[in-house]
């Protein structure tokens, strides 16, 4: 059980999970309220909203916090339940890569809408 001893870490992941959680409280509330307001918009009105500086900035912040929080959470789940070493490493790597990709695609889309002429 002593196995390889204490990793002397884990606090950082724990802390970042909480930090991103705190950031996501106002950001998800903003997203939920905005989606409610814009759910029936036509395309042009929606784009006009997404182009406002506030919406663009908050959307980028949301995507960053969300994808970070999501990666940390999903990785804990894999560590909990998947105990085949190779499968676990593959799954953890995949989550990291896909989360970054998701954040980049989302941020790029937001910025394209916000910044295109």
């Amino acid at each position: 059980m002593q196995n390889l001893g204490s990793a002397r870490e884990g606090a950082r992941q724990w802390w970042m999970q909480r930090m991103t959680a705190v950031a996501l409280i106002p950001l998800t509330l903003w997203l939920a309220a905005s989606l409610l307001r814009h759910v029936a918009d036509d395309y042009a009105t929606l784009i006009a909203w997404l182009r406002t500086p506030l919406a663009a900035v908050l959307m980028v912040l949301l995507l960053m916090a969300l994808c970070y929080h999501m990666a940390l959470g999903l990785k804990v789940i894999i560590e909990d339940y998947v105990h085949l070493d190779r499968l676990q490493i593959a799954a953890l790597t995949l989550i990291d890569l896909l989360s970054v990709a998701l954040a980049v695609v989302g941020i790029f889309a937001s910025l394209r809408v916000a910044l295109s002429a």
Binding site: A7, G10, E79
Partner: peptide, 14 residues
């Protein structure tokens, strides 16, 4: 605390 600070020993508590 050094001995406890580990992703599994302590932080597996959810």
């Amino acid at each position: 605390l050094d001995a406890l600070e580990d992703p599994f020993r302590l932080y597996r508590c959810h």
